[in-house]
């Protein structure tokens, strides 16, 4: 187990290095940020000074060398836009995104497992049809459209919840609800499919022959066996959310990492772009590791 974690850490470290190289050079290809930050009529001297301060005059390889050296000591440089350490800016935004993703995924997982398992227990029944119908709609509806309609209806027309921002619990309801819909539909479908095959297995037959009741058969005997593919999809969806739910965050004015990344790219705030990519990449690496470990917890046949 420990060797497995160590191997995975090394492999992920290598991909992080690759990522730094790639993103650093790609972002430099987008051009010089000087003209974006200084007024159009700024003098040549002040432009030169700006470049000098931010190290933009050095050859690109030297810039990269400096950057890499700083990253090793967890110094990602300063945000040009906010004039603060980039890592600090990113971690602030990331904590918002992490909370949003964690709350949403927790609700999604619990709901999708319960509804998916119940739908699978009576395939073709009324409950199954309703669940399948709504999960298909959920999985295929575009979130930007749902977000806008939800704001118009619940915030503007009914006035139940605020349109945007993060002040109170009420502010969280719409973003969480909108983010909930798509992964809920997807995961419900996976739970349902996986449960159907699990429920028709020989060990479920054994349980029925033992006299085990319908509820423990679904939630004790079948569910744990059906969880492996479900965990994979949960991980995939959670990774998407950790990368920042860009559209939803923008529409609800939510100060998460997705919105931060888009803003920084548009403003060529390279330090922040790189720092956000590193932070989300780290988060996704840790999450994938947790998922692999949870396979082993759920299924004793899997050992690393």
């Amino acid at each position: 187990m420990k060797t497995f974690i160590r191997k995975r850490a090394v492999a992920s470290g290598l991909s992080l290095i690759g990522l730094i190289v790639l993103v650093f050079f790609l972002s430099r290809l987008t051009g010089d940020p000087t003209s974006l930050y200084l007024p159009v009529d700024a003098s040549l001297e002040s432009r030169e000074q700006f470049r000098e301060i931010h190290g933009l005059n050095d050859p690109i390889l030297v810039q990269f060398f400096h950057y890499a050296r700083d990253v090793l000591s967890l110094d990602f440089g300063d945000s040009i836009r906010k004039a603060r350490p980039a890592l600090q800016v990113v971690l602030e935004a990331f904590s918002w995104t992490l909370t949003l993703a964690a709350v949403t995924m927790l609700l999604v997982t619990v709901a999708a497992i319960i509804f998916g398992a119940l739908a699978a227990s009576r395939v073709g029944g009324v409950f199954d049809r309703i669940a399948t119908f709504f999960s298909l709609i959920g999985a295929s509806a575009p979130d930007f459209w749902i977000a806008i309609v939800a704001i118009v209806f619940f915030s503007v027309y009914l006035g139940w919840v605020p349109t945007s921002g993060t002040g109170t619990v009420w502010h969280w309801i719409l973003p969480v609800a909108v983010l909930f819909i798509r992964p809920f539909g997807l995961i419900l479908q996976v739970v349902r499919g996986s449960m159907i095959s699990s429920l028709s297995s020989a060990y479920v037959k054994t349980a029925r022959a033992k006299g085990v009741g319908p509820r423990p058969i679904i939630f004790v005997h079948a569910l744990r066996n059906a969880m492996l593919p479900v965990i994979t999809v949960i991980g995939d969806q959670a990774a998407g959310m950790l990368n920042g739910a860009v559209v939803v965050e923008t529409i609800f004015g939510f100060p998460g990492v997705g919105k931060l990344m888009i803003d920084s790219i548009l403003q060529r705030d390279f330090a922040v772009v790189l720092a956000s990519i590193m932070v989300t990449a780290m988060a996704i690496f840790i999450m994938n590791l947790l998922i692999d470990l949870s396979y082993a917890v759920l299924d004793p046949r899997i050992r690393y």
Binding site: A209, K210, G211, R224, L298
Partner: peptide, 24 residues
């Protein structure tokens, strides 16, 4: 029926690997 299953009438199956629950 469940009262009788397992207590009064029990059953074993062909392939014991798949008939036992692999995760418990």
């Amino acid at each position: 029926r469940r009262e009788i299953n397992g207590k009064r009438i029990a059953m074993i199956f062909q392939d014991p690997l798949s008939a036992l629950n692999p995760v418990y």
